[in-house]
Write a protein that binds this DNA or RNA. Sequence first.
DNA 1: ATGGTGGCGAGGCCA
Length: 256
Amino acid sequence: MRIATWNVNSVRARLERLLPWLAERQPDVVCLQETKCIDEKFPREEIEDAGYQVALHGQKTYNGVAILSKKPIEDVTRGVGIERFDKDARVIGATVEDVMVLCVYVVNGHEVGHPRYDYKLEWLGALRDFIVDRFPMDEKVSVCGDFNVTFDDLDVYDPERWRGRILCSGPERKALTDLCETGLQDGLRPFHPEGGVYTWWDYRRRGFEQGNRGLRIDHHLLSPSAMACCSGVEVDFEARAGVRPSDHAPVIATLE
DNA sequence: ATGGTGGCGAGGCCA
């Protein structure tokens, strides 16, 4: 089973990239973030025609997450069960065959010290509690999505420039590694121990066009049994190139 | 270059 996660930065704006990508890559499960539309406006028919069932947790203008799957989607959950954190549509979970998938769009935080930064850290704590409650670590689990946090400087093209800043600060990184204390682990790093693999390149700085100046902030966090059957986690760099791309590339985990 | 681009939705917010 191949599971992809992709922050598409509006599913409607990205449909002309998403549909050919589904046809070419044929992932079994796709976790989308920042769909940016209510469920009634989600391009359901086009995606079903491409061979995928959909589970939606949408919202107008901001946020919005979805799970697409070739196989039946079961036991769909939305949010983390705490009203304060569920006002935004940032979490959707489902089971496909023997794999439990949780698709997350973590709060960005704006900048270190901003109220939204504190909220981000609280939000990550609530996500950890939800994972502890709901995801048995003897199951195959992927918690994947846009975490808006780098693990360490190997995930950063220019660590000095980014040191201590949003997406790279110590408290954010601790919140991310605390998520992994539940038993999950970074799925990609074992396959790319040298680092330098990125998933997001800023539109404003032309970070992609000007030479792979990116960060790795999109992740697959895998349970031990998922990791044990994982033969690779790769970034689809090509999807970031071309006409009207998202600012994020997809990350695909292959479970044998 | 503390700017810049992109999406939404129709001016400003968010990333």
